[in-house]
């Protein structure tokens, strides 16, 4: 399956939801998705475009734009195209629909993104901290305005 084909199919199906769909190279594509519809787009990708492998879900903090981005890297077991699907969220109260019903392994990625960036994943089956202790919840350490690094988090380095 070709990148342009994929992007065309995607934009045709979700004309309002997908924006800035670009092909970076023969095997990489990028698109912004409306955050309300992220899960439906994932469902479509999985069902119709053979994107059955979720590589990762991660957050990026663009503090200058006062925005958070959730980036889904969706690949396939059949073709080498990796689609970088991005959803823009506000830095206050970021919320997005969970992709767990579509991709089972999104579970831990979303839990990790939640505790590191404070992005709420709605309808997530078990949204609680995965790698950080419970009392660090609310500090969102991977956000750019986190003050604790390295003095609070790496304090036992002699």
């Amino acid at each position: 399956m070709d990148v342009t084909e994929i992007l065309k199919s995607l934009t045709d199906t979700f004309p309002e939801v997908i924006s800035e769909a670009t092909a970076e190279s023969g095997i990489r594509a990028r698109a912004y998705v409306d955050r309300e519809k992220a899960r439906e787009v994932c469902q479509y990708l999985k069902d119709s475009l053979q994107f059955d492998h979720l590589c990762s879900v991660c957050g990026v903090d663009y503090i200058k734009r006062n925005e958070l981005e959730v980036v889904y890297h969706i690949a396939s077991y059949n073709h080498p195209v990796v689609l970088m699907l991005k959803a823009v969220l506000p830095r206050e109260n970021p919320e997005i629909e969970s992709a767990v019903p579509v991709y089972w392994n999104a579970n831990w990625y979303e839990r990790e993104t939640y505790e590191l960036f404070g992005i709420m994943f709605k309808n997530h089956p078990n949204l609680k901290p995965l790698i950080l202790p419970e009392d660090m919840l609310g500090e969102w350490p991977l956000r750019k305005d986190y003050k604790g690094f390295p003095n609070a988090t790496a304090r036992n380095l002699v």
């Binding site: 901290p129 950080l132 350490p141 991977l142 690094f149 988090t153 790496a154």
Partner: peptide, 10 residues
Amino acid sequence: LGFIHKGIEK
């Protein structure tokens, strides 16, 4: 998880 979280991304 989280017993040896090193915060490599940070």
